[in-house]
Amino acid sequence: MSHPKDMYFESVTKTFDATVALENFSLTVRSGELLTLLGPSGCGKTTALRIAAGFERPDTGRVLVGAVDITNQPPHLRQMGMVFQSYSLFPHLSVIDNVTFGLRMKRVASQEQRMRGLRMLELVRMEGLTDRLPHQLSGGQQQRVALARALATQPDVLLLDEPLSALDAKVRAEVRDEIRTLTTRLGTTTVFVTHDQEEALGISDRICVMNKGIVEQVGSPTEIYDHPRSSFVADFVGELNRIRLGGVDLVVRPEQVILDNCHTADTGGEIVATSFHGSFMRYQVRLDDGQAVTAIAKHTPGSGMRAGTRVTVKIGDEKHERSV
C-alpha cells in the first residue's frame, strides 16, 4: 500500500484562450479525506481535477503529492485513479479485464492481477458479472466497475469527475453511498467534483466551494451550510430567502422560517402554493407587502396547511440573520 500523502495545489493559474479557468488556486487535500470541489459549471472545478490528473498543464503554479512536485509529470506516470462522468470503460474488454488494466500496465503478475481484480469487484458488489462487456451493464454498474478499476492500482489520490451525474436518482444515491463507504474503508484520498450541492453535503469530509476560478470557501459541510462566508456560497449551497423585515435585510434558510396560523404581532402573509415531499412540506408564502418567502416544515400527521391559509411569519434561529 502506498503511503498516504497530502496533495497540494499551489497558486495554480490556468487560462483557456481568453477565459480564466483557475486563478491563483491553492488548496490542500489531506490524506485520507474526501474533499469535494463544488461550484456551477465553468467555475474551474473540472480544470483543477484535470490538472491533478495531468491532462492539463497549469500556466503557473505547482501541484504536489507529499513532497513530490508532479506538475510536469505526464498522466501515465502519476499515481492517480480517475472515474469519469460516463462511458469510460474500455468497450472491448470484459469487466475483470477493465479492472485489471492498470495492474497489467504496471506489469503485476497475472495471477495477482486476477486476485486483486476480483477483490475490487467484490468490494463494489460486482463479482457476479466479471466476464460481461461494458455495454451489457447498466449505468450504475458501469460506474461501480469504473470505481473498482480506478482503485485497483491503489492510487495516491482518487479523482471523481461528476461520476453520478449520468445516473438516475435512485442509482445515484446507491453509488454515492458506495463511493463513501469504499473510500473510507480503503482510506483513499479522494477529490470529488460536482455541481450538485446536495450530493456535496452528503458525501464530503470537506467542501471547497468555487466560483469563476476562485476558491470561495473551504470547510466541512456543516460549516459551509451554517456559516457561509459569502453570499455566493450561501446562495449556491442550500436554498435561501432574502427578505426585508422591520427595516432589516435578512438572509434565511427556508427551514428557519416558521409559519403560524394564529395571529400575533409578527409579519403576516398568505400561503400561495404547497408541495409535499414526504418527510417535509414546502410552502410558498406571499407576505402582505408583496415579498415572497419559501418555508419548509417537518411533516407530522395533520400538520399540513392549505394554500390560501393566512399565516404569520417568524424567523427561527436568530444567529443566522445577517445582512448581506
Partner: peptide, 8 residues
Amino acid sequence: MATLTNRL
C-alpha cells in the same frame, strides 16, 4: 459540464 479539451 463542458470540459475544456486539450488543444493538441
